[in-house]
Amino acid sequence: MNGMNWMGRESAAALRTVSRMGRLAASAACIALYCSAATGAGLDAFAGKKGTLDIAGGTAHIPVMKEAAKRIMQANPEIRITVGAGGSGVGVQKVGEGLIHIGNTGRPLSDEEIAKYGLKSFAFAIDGVAAAVHPKNPVSNLTPAQVQDIFAGKITNWKTVGGADAAIHLYTRDEASGTREVFWEKLLKKGSIVEAANVVASNGAMKSAVSGDPGAIGYVSIGHIDETIKAPTLDGVAPTQDNARSGKYPIVRNLYMNTKGAPQGLTAAFIDYIMGPEGVKITADAGYLPLSR
């Protein structure tokens, strides 16, 4: 019953190595399986159902949620699924207040959040968070110390880290962001981020900001990395999902769907769908490592 609570509490330590994370993932999947009532995993599960499902929160989740919503609504026009953004903090608050059915987070829930709202978490994917620069930036490797110094404002010119003689433009996320929290905890080691950094509101916004600014550095979910932005290697390790899976790339986290109490009806069916074979494929296509059953 409270398995996911345990996960939230332990997660900071437990996620440190991916081998342990694999076990965690397995347990998460088991718990999700245990919790959900419906058995069908494909679109058939939605046959005859109708109603509205509101989803909001973590922005790394959006590509997966949108694609799943599209397929479900095309198969069954009686169902309306809305996907909002906002960031992980928004996801927690809105689902906790009962404003939406599923609140996504890119970080484990805190004890306080679980206690206050009675939330249940369903981890469905592993994602990495990586520093990102403009594709034309010659810098292709950074050390954790360099990234920390850049975000702390100690390094302000790309020359210092082997790039062109140009000022570094910092981009960061707002405080509701789970991506920010993971990046800050695991790569910046809770170091400071200078207040002068530009603030953007989502992973997508980060990507478009960095792709348009040759002097930029920001951080995004690995699922959002494509040819429009470049992710420098970290101590020689490329931030790819393969390296995240094998444990070589350490800045990883789970992506969660959270519900208030045990999910029922449409909500349960949706979570089942995401965790089922089709959902796994959608998750993988979006660039994440699915945590399947």
Partner: peptide, 12 residues
């Protein structure tokens, strides 16, 4: 606009 959606019980 940026902060409206954070946790509804904090001072923020």
């Amino acid at each position: 606009a940026l902060v409206v959606a954070t946790d509804s019980h904090s001072a923020a």
